[in-house]
Design a protein around this nucleic acid. Sequence first.
DNA 1: TATGAATGAGCCTTCATTCAT
DNA 2: GATGAATGAAGGCTCATTCAT
Lengths: 208, 208, 208, 208
Amino acid sequence: MTEREDLLVGNFPIVPKQKRAQQKRNALLESGRILFIDKGYEQTTAKDIAAHAGVATGTFYRYFSDKRQLLMSLLEDKIEEFFPPEPSWSTPDPVSFIAKMLEDHGKRLNKFGLHRVLQELLPKDPELAEAISEARRKIHSRIYSGLKQAFEKGWTWKDLDFDTVSWSIMTLVENAHEKEVQDGGHVDYYQLAKVICRMVFPPEVHKE
Amino acid sequence: MTEREDLLVGNFPIVPKQKRAQQKRNALLESGRILFIDKGYEQTTAKDIAAHAGVATGTFYRYFSDKRQLLMSLLEDKIEEFFPPEPSWSTPDPVSFIAKMLEDHGKRLNKFGLHRVLQELLPKDPELAEAISEARRKIHSRIYSGLKQAFEKGWTWKDLDFDTVSWSIMTLVENAHEKEVQDGGHVDYYQLAKVICRMVFPPEVHKE
Amino acid sequence: MTEREDLLVGNFPIVPKQKRAQQKRNALLESGRILFIDKGYEQTTAKDIAAHAGVATGTFYRYFSDKRQLLMSLLEDKIEEFFPPEPSWSTPDPVSFIAKMLEDHGKRLNKFGLHRVLQELLPKDPELAEAISEARRKIHSRIYSGLKQAFEKGWTWKDLDFDTVSWSIMTLVENAHEKEVQDGGHVDYYQLAKVICRMVFPPEVHKE
Amino acid sequence: MTEREDLLVGNFPIVPKQKRAQQKRNALLESGRILFIDKGYEQTTAKDIAAHAGVATGTFYRYFSDKRQLLMSLLEDKIEEFFPPEPSWSTPDPVSFIAKMLEDHGKRLNKFGLHRVLQELLPKDPELAEAISEARRKIHSRIYSGLKQAFEKGWTWKDLDFDTVSWSIMTLVENAHEKEVQDGGHVDYYQLAKVICRMVFPPEVHKE
DNA sequence: TATGAATGAGCCTTCATTCAT
DNA sequence: GATGAATGAAGGCTCATTCAT
């Protein structure tokens, strides 16, 4: 982690070396995460976070230059959690594979919990928006090339539009975990995987 | 929805009857919309809105109890814009039909422009979240029953999972218009429609 | 005054047009002056000034962008008070003339009262420092040319160093009014004028 | 002055006896001096000083009760630097003597460098103001008696006003070194000395 | 009704000072 | 003695909301 520390964040107020300091820093991070998720980013003040972490206001500013930097530190570690693993089409049972992947990814995202906060921030934070956009582009291109390979092996629909289908898969994966929250119901990841496979494979391949 | 409408909005400052007043109210609404989209909800102050509408700060509060209510009024009129029209499967050419629908809906949403603002607000406004959720449920159930009818006519996959597929369609439709913004590229609505149809119809029906 | 308003200050928060507003602005200016003199610039907060003027903190910021701007507004009107009037050497009785001038100028400065504040600020406010410097340069050059004229009329010491003597006169005039404060004693302006004249005129001219 | 010295300074953290401690204390003093001159008194924090001296913040408070006391200690050692040596009128060449004295004193003051800081503090620190005032009174009285002696020897103007002339001399001496800074130009100490002598001696004595 | 000045709570941030290690 | 993290009071400033005109 240390090497990526200044990726989004800059290495502003000292990388804390003592264990104590690390703990306090982590407490602040965790408090930030909780409050951001609970009340939203704007509604959470530095004071709130400090109080929730059981430290004084000033202490917050020893570890973070401001609220935004705390959020960035939070993201930095976890940004990879947004990347769904590349779906593999050359599996004996792609549906199960994807179902498993969806479920794992959903769990990860829900545990992460900051997606809402990101949406709140994207409009006002172009730098962040760009970072996210970049991440999305990567996912998209990974799915895209996976599809291409499958296509070249003759497994997919002949008229597969790589771009549209990659985007559709990405969109469904990204939103799947929200489904649970939204309608309280649970997602049938297996069914969703089946739908995704149907977007890619014609039925005869499916059976194979 | 109509019955809960005033729940959302409150019936505070009386719907003004005079033409002058109506104009002012509309100017405020429009200014609010523009500024919310431009700078985000939190970043827009009541004073900003009033100034942009060419009235005094105090006047704002004659027409709206606060910023939130203005937003709610804005949504009230336009909430239906979120509803994609029910896809019709019993059309000679469902792909083209859906493609057209996607495009129209995308245009409408982009013209509306407040989706970003909604995302900014959802975390802090459970009431609004509930209203949106409700709207979603309606769309979902409409798509659901459309699918069911198609199923009963024997057009769809035999093992169609209504819920999963409805949700997938809804998700793709909701996000399609964002694609343009995100990757600057334009959406190929026809291809997307094809993908959707593939989720629903087996290939042999397709040709019909 | 209005035409010079934006000299040092910029015309930040609206030139108040209503009488009420003018009064409030003036009250703030006066409170600022009093508190600056009493407690020093740094020790005076915007809140203090507002409270002393009997208005809320926010009101302060309607009229001034910050403490510094208030001070600048204060100076703007009064900056000319720093300029001692040009001593006239071609008077029947230059000593009396200068004595009178010194006294008037001292009174003016003491009424103004902000010289201490200026000294507090000069080191940290280069813009202000420049303005003051500029003013000083003007005074200096006026005294300088007055001396030159007197010299050309053959009234002064033959070896008069214009620069040194101008500077000496300026320095004495500037500091004279502080003498009262410093040793509680009062300044004998007449004696001081005599000293100044001795710096300029040889004794034989003196009697003339 | 010696008796009041600890009044100014307080005898708080005991003059440290160990060599190490002395060094640290001196480092802090020197760092304080440098930073005060560079950034001003208010703008310099205890932490700044400690950091500049290469010790921890807490250490600062072992040696000084606070920022003010450090400044006072700084002055304590150097306050005598403010005293211009008594001008001697009974020299073969008083002009040169005084010129030399002015130059030396200017150099000393400029090396000292804290005059600006004093001006920043005087308004808020009556005790310091009193100490300075006291010092001034001493200088004044020394010059005064020097003049008196010269007068008694019949060297000066017959109508010399001791008080006014002492004050004038003191004022010119005190401000001379600032002239360099102010107009970038250099002071012609010889000319200034001549002016001072003219305030004291009539021309015929001058030649003597 | 319309106006916009006034209000003051509350956020962000700094820094003198303390204190556990 | 030294350290530097922690504290929290206090200042700067904004903005939603009220209210006298």
